[in-house]
Amino acid sequence: MQTTYLTTEALSERIHYDVRTIRDRLKDSVLIEGVHYIRPFGGRKILYLWEPIERDMRIGKRTPTDAAIPMASGALCHG
């Protein structure tokens, strides 16, 4: 599978979101490190992975536990 690496500015152009919105509101809330972006060589620079971002924008990122309610016992209640 081919991977397309994008800077924040290039991602901004593709998804039509402001660079600040990506950095301040999307990164680490809907864009997850290791899934949607990486820090090459452990540095500060961030490269976004286009294919997982595009996939999750189209289908929405939901896991079975997203709809679950955590219980005090640690179990999950699926409502």
Rank of each mutant, 00 (worst) to 15 (best):
H78I: 12
I53H: 02
A67T: 14
A72M: 03
R62W: 09
A67D: 15
D66N: 06
G60C: 00
P52A: 07
L49I: 14
Q2D: 13
I38D: 04
K27I: 10
A72H: 04
K27V: 13
L47M: 02
T63N: 10
G79D: 13
P70H: 00
A68K: 12
T4Y: 03
T4D: 04
E33A: 13
Y5D: 12
T63D: 11
E54M: 02
K61V: 03
G34R: 05
L76V: 11
L47Q: 04
M71E: 14
D18R: 06
Q2F: 09
I53D: 05
I53N: 01
L31F: 15
L76A: 12
L31Y: 14
A10D: 14
T8V: 06
V19R: 08
H16Q: 06
A68C: 15
T7L: 03
L26V: 00
L47A: 01
I53E: 03
I59T: 08
T65I: 14
C77I: 14
Y48R: 00
R62Y: 13
H16D: 04
S73G: 04
A75R: 10
G42C: 05
H36M: 01
Y17C: 07
I53G: 02
S73Y: 05
G74V: 08
R39W: 09
Y5N: 10
R55A: 07
D28N: 15
T8K: 01
I32Q: 14
T63C: 10
K61C: 08
A68H: 13
